[in-house]
Amino acid sequence: MLNYNVFIALLHYPAMDKDGKPIVTSFTTMDLHDIARPCRAYEINTYYIVQPVDGQRYIIRKQLEYWLSEEGKKDNPTRYEAVSLVKLAYTYEEVLEDIQKRTGKMPKVVGTDARKYPNTVSYDFLRHEIQKREDNFLIVFGTAYGIPPDLMSTFDYILEPIYGAGDWNHLSVRNAAAIILDRLLSRNRC
């Protein structure tokens, strides 16, 4: 994989509701496929789905088992390739521990949000940092109304928001992941 030093995590917990209260969000099948595909296209290392609820984890595991089975591979080989990058985790901390265990060092953590933060960086800045291949990077995506501010404050960087043609920037996490991976890792931008 070209971008072996890039990992992503989709957080179903911690997440926030519209009032800023902590919640656990539900998994959607589209998040599995529609985020795994750009992960494969941009050759990242691992796509973590963080889900602490056992009933939700069961659904995710069943989908992973099918697409990683011989039947799933035969049915859709490209889906098999994309889904093979997915790893299920209970917690965000488990993701960090797994990356450290596998690579020997903690990753630089990069948050994503529709708002700017004091440690907001540009796509150009992060793309150049990734291309140095000196550090590992974990790009964290939130669900519902985003990642709680107390967790965001622990991240090394926050990517600048995705702006469209106007003021409206409330994209689905699937759209945001694809756009962000393209801006950071596309060979057209290097």
Rank of each mutant, 00 (worst) to 15 (best):
Met1Asn: 12
Met1Arg: 10
Met1Gly: 14
Tyr4Thr: 07
Phe7Ser: 08
Phe7Asn: 08
Ile8Gly: 05
Ile8Leu: 14
Ala9Glu: 03
Leu10Phe: 10
Leu11Ser: 01
Leu11Ala: 04
Leu11Gly: 01
His12Ile: 01
His12Cys: 02
Tyr13Val: 00
Pro14Gly: 08
Asp19Glu: 14
Val24Met: 05
Val24Cys: 06
Ser26Glu: 09
Ser26Met: 09
Phe27Ile: 02
Thr28Gln: 09
Thr28Phe: 05
Asp31Leu: 02
Asp31Ile: 04
Leu32Pro: 00
His33Ser: 07
His33Cys: 08
Ile35Met: 14
Ile35His: 01
Ala36Asp: 00
Arg37Phe: 00
Arg37Asp: 00
Arg37Met: 06
Cys39Asn: 00
Tyr42Ala: 00
Thr46Ser: 07
Tyr47Trp: 04
Tyr48Val: 05
Ile49Trp: 01
Ile49Leu: 09
Val50Ser: 04
Pro52Val: 00
Gly55Ile: 05
Ile59Val: 14
Ile59Asp: 08
Ile60Lys: 06
Arg61Asn: 14
Leu64Ser: 04
Trp67Leu: 02
Ser69Ile: 05
Ser69Arg: 12
Glu70Lys: 11
Glu71Ser: 13
Lys73His: 10
Lys73Phe: 00
Lys74Cys: 02
Asn76Ile: 02
Pro77Met: 03
Thr78Gln: 11
Arg79Gly: 09
Glu81Ala: 10
Glu81Leu: 12
Ala82Asp: 11
Ala82Met: 10
Leu85Ala: 01
Leu85Gly: 02
Val86Trp: 00
Leu88Trp: 02
Ala89Glu: 14
Thr91Asn: 08
Tyr92Gln: 07
Tyr92Gly: 05
Tyr92Cys: 07
Leu96Arg: 07
Glu97Ser: 15
Ile99Pro: 11
Gln100Gly: 02
Arg102Asp: 13
Thr103Ser: 12
Gly104Pro: 08
Lys108Thr: 06
Val109Gln: 07
Val110Met: 05
Val110Cys: 05
Val110Glu: 05
Ala114Glu: 04
Ala114Pro: 00
Lys116Glu: 14
Lys116Gln: 05
Lys116Ser: 11
Pro118His: 04
Asn119Met: 12
Val121Tyr: 03
Val121Lys: 13
Ser122Met: 11
Tyr123Val: 01
Asp124Ile: 13
Phe125Pro: 06
His128Tyr: 13
Ile130Asp: 03
Gln131Met: 13
Gln131Ser: 12
Glu134Tyr: 08
Glu134Phe: 05
Asp135Tyr: 12
Asn136Arg: 10
Asn136Cys: 15
Ile139Phe: 03
Ala144Cys: 07
Ala144Glu: 09
Tyr145Val: 04
Tyr145Lys: 09
Asp150Met: 11
Phe155Glu: 05
Asp156Ile: 04
Asp156His: 10
Ile158His: 15
Ile158Pro: 00
Leu159Val: 10
Glu160Cys: 09
Glu160Lys: 12
Glu160Asp: 13
Glu160Tyr: 07
Pro161Ala: 12
Ile162Arg: 04
Ile162Asp: 03
Tyr163Met: 15
Gly164Thr: 15
Gly166Tyr: 13
Trp168Lys: 15
Trp168Ile: 15
Asn169Gln: 12
Ser172Glu: 11
Val173Thr: 15
Arg174Phe: 12
Asn175Trp: 10
Ala176Lys: 01
Ala176Val: 06
Ala177Arg: 06
Ala178Asn: 13
Ala178Ser: 15
Arg183Cys: 08
Arg187His: 10
Arg187Thr: 12
Asn188Lys: 14
Asn188Cys: 03
